[in-house]
């Protein structure tokens, strides 16, 4: 059996992105990972930019001027959106990991209901709070609040 050639059928990153009739929690999973990587990238850039102060006031001013452009303002807003989603969804995941909101084991009766149904109200609340935060943040970033 083992000497036969086999084809590796790993989904890889495509496995994150879909390609199927998936549930909403799977998209949150993907978004959680993407926003996590985005925040990590921002963190690296942030360290790089703030370290420019080591090279004198001129270098600092140059970088700060560079980031005043509208594109970077929009980028900052996207970082905020990613952060708001990642933080709140992370709280949901921590609660679930401690066994809250997933319910107890029960006899499976068709049509099956799973822990996903049990935790869905929590997911809806968390996403509503994230949306409110993002909208409030949008007001700030778009300059309605000074």
């Amino acid at each position: 059996m083992d000497e036969h050639k086999k084809y590796p059928n790993k989904l890889g990153i495509i496995g994150w992105l879909g390609g199927g009739r998936w549930g909403i929690e799977r998209y949150l999973y993907t978004l959680h990972r993407i926003t996590g990587l985005g925040i990590l990238l921002y963190f690296c850039l942030h360290i790089f930019v703030t370290s420019s102060r080591l090279f004198g006031m001129n270098a600092w001013e140059k970088w700060m001027g560079f980031f005043k452009s509208p594109i970077f303002k929009m980028g900052e807003f996207l970082v905020f959106v990613g952060f708001a989603f990642h933080a709140l969804n992370g709280i949901r995941l921590i609660l679930i990991e401690f066994g809250f909101a997933v319910g107890k084991a029960e006899e499976p009766v068709y049509p099956y209901k799973s822990s996903l149904n049990t935790q869905r109200p929590l997911m809806v609340i968390v996403m509503v709070v994230a949306a409110v935060l993002i909208v409030a943040g949008g007001y700030q970033f778009l300059g309605f609040v000074h």
């Binding site: 799977r26 997933v102 084991a105 499976p108 099956y112 799973s114």
Partner: peptide
């Protein structure tokens, strides 16, 4: 990280996602 797809596709209603949490 609780994508939950294991529980969605399980043909016997076993709910692996719940057991893992």
């Amino acid at each position: 990280h609780y994508a939950g797809e294991c529980s969605n596709v399980c043909p016997k209603g076993v709910d692996p996602a719940r057991a893992i949490q």
